[in-house]
Every structure is written in C-alpha cells, then in structure tokens.
C-alpha cells in the first residue's frame, strides 16, 4: 500500500511574529516499492515533509495516509507506523549511545517479539548488510570513525526491518566509496521491495538510483517526475533551484558540440554507453 500525502500544509510558530509557512498544499503518492528522491534548496521544507510522513510532526491541514490509514486520524495505532516505517535522520551517528556496537544495534529489537537467537541473528545480518566488520561489534560505537558510526546508526534503523525507509541526507560527510556503498545498500533494499524516500542534494546519486524525484521549492511541491523528466530541460531545473548532476552537464556539453544525439542523460552507465557507441572504431 502506498504513502499518500494529501493537501498537506504545515506552519511553524503559529500565531507568533515568527510564523513560517514550511509547507503549502503538498500532494503526492509514493507507490509500494518505489524509490523516491526529494530535492530542493536549503529551507525548502524537505525535512519537515519527511518528519510529517514519519508522524513526528502533525500537519496543520491535510492528511497523510500510509497503507490507506490516516496516521493522524482518531484511533490510529502509532505502533503500527513505528513498525512499518524507519527514519534515518541527518547525521544519525549523533544518536549512538550504547556501550558496544552490538548493543546499540540490538536496542532497536528490544520490544520486538523475537527470541534471543533470532535477535542475535538479526544483528549479525544487519551489520553485514551495512558492511560493518563483525569482529569490531564489541567496540564502543563512540570509538569508531565517522564512516563506521554512520553504518552502525543506519543498521540500528534497518534492524527492525521497516518496510518504508526514509533517509535524510544520508550521503553528507561520507567519502566517495562510503557514498557508493550506501547507495548500493539502498538499491538492494529497494530491490527487496522496500519503499525508499531519500532526501539529498546530490543530483548524480538520485538520478542514478531513484525511480522518481520530487522537487520542493519554498514549501511547495514544484515538480515531480523521473530523473530524465526533472533534468531534461536544464533551464527549467535552474528555475526549480536545483542543480543538475555532473553526468547531465557533461551530456549537455557533448550534445552542444554535436557529439551526442540527446542531452537528457542523467545516469553514468548510459552516458558511457552513448560515448562508446558514438566513438566505436575510432
């Protein structure tokens, strides 16, 4: 069942001089198993939107339906939402607190109806899934490097196996391999049927992995579509206050020099394939 956001508006500091309209009349659907990227300028409302979907904020107006149920409706079981949806905040490593990596990850399983063995199995599975070396699971999470901390923090959210996963700027501060490894992990989760919402400024990353991109601009949903639709017209992308990725910009330059048939390429593999095709036998 999809995530449905219907006519949602949200204000901060209501009825004070500091009142800010963070979101205005946002509507969209994310289908089951879809990978949706969310882009937009700092302060455009991205984080507000995902906090609303995660039920951490209540919209001033409008509805958010998950699996057909209004998560702010009377009688809605919030525990169901917590089981269904996992959210990884910006810099999630600041939430690590336990004495060992193992215990930090296992904390997420505390209230699940699992046997000791099942819990241990789950921790092993999830640490492996995020690429954390098991022999280091007895270390304090606070003694790890930044990249390792990030993995452990993400593992803590994945451990409970939520079906919907929300990531807020998961790539910030990771090195290039760390970024690639995270994206491959997200792609794997996506293939396994999870719904993924990911906020990022990295156009190349979202274009390479997301099915669809939503663009927010000053609290409004200003565009949505496939990466090719969003970045097909660079001038339009500019008016949406989002920068195209490097792949798209190289494609544009090659197109203008008559070296590509179409400039609307946003994925590395496709760009490389086109360049090879056009230069075969040279």
């Amino acid at each position: 069942m999809p995530i449905e956001v219907k006519e949602v508006s949200c204000r901060y500091g209501e009825r004070t001089p500091l009142e800010v309209q963070a979101l205005k009349e946002i509507s969209f659907r994310a289908e089951d198993g879809e990978f949706v990227g969310i882009m937009g300028h700092t302060g455009c409302g991205k984080s507000t939107l995902i906090q609303l979907i995660a039920g951490l904020l209540t919209p001033g107006e409008g509805q958010i339906l998950i699996d057909g149920k209004d998560i702010n409706g009377p009688g809605y079981d919030r525990e169901e939402l917590r089981r269904t949806l996992g959210i990884v905040f910006q810099y999630p490593e600041s939430q690590l607190f336990e004495t060992t990596v193992w215990r930090d990850v296992a904390f997420a399983l505390k209230h699940l109806d699992l046997s000791r063995e099942e819990k241990a199995e789950r921790v092993r599975w999830v640490l492996e899934a995020v690429g954390f070396r098991m022999e280091r699971a007895g270390k304090s999470p606070l003694s790890l490097s930044g990249g390792e901390k990030r993995r452990v923090a993400i593992a803590g959210v994945l451990a409970a196996r939520p079906r919907i996963l929300i990531f807020d700027e998961p790539l910030a501060g990771l090195d290039p391999w760390g970024r690639l490894e995270f994206l491959e992990l997200a792609a794997r989760l996506h293939r396994q049927g999870n719904t993924i919402l990911m906020v990022s400024h990295d156009a190349d990353a979202l274009c390479g992995y997301a099915d669809r991109i939503l663009v927010l601009d000053r609290g409004r949903l200003s565009a949505q579509g496939t990466p090719e639709e969003i970045f097909g017209d660079l001038e339009r992308a500019e008016t949406l206050h989002i920068g195209a990725g490097e792949v798209r910009r190289i494609a544009q330059a090659l197109y203008e020099k008559g070296r590509l048939q179409s400039p609307a390429i946003t994925k590395y593999k496709i760009l490389l394939g086109e360049i090879k095709k056009n230069n075969k036998g040279r």
Binding site: D175, P176, W177, L180, D204, E246, V247, R249, I250, A253, Y268, L271, L272, I275, K276, N279, R282
Partner: peptide, 28 residues
C-alpha cells in the same frame, strides 16, 4: 580507497574498452 573524478573515470572506462583519449582529463 577513493573514487576518481567523473572525467577521470570516463577516461579509464573508455580506455578499458579500447577508446583512447590523447590525455587524461581532470575536469569535465
């Protein structure tokens, strides 16, 4: 354990498939 800039990656990926550029570019 780092990934080269995009232009450098394209240079080497083309080289690996037999397309050789005169020099390795640094920028797009």
């Amino acid at each position: 354990e780092l990934i080269p800039p995009l232009a450098v990656r394209i240079y080497y990926d083309l080289k690996d498939s037999g397309i050789l550029l005169d020099r390795c570019p640094l920028t797009n």
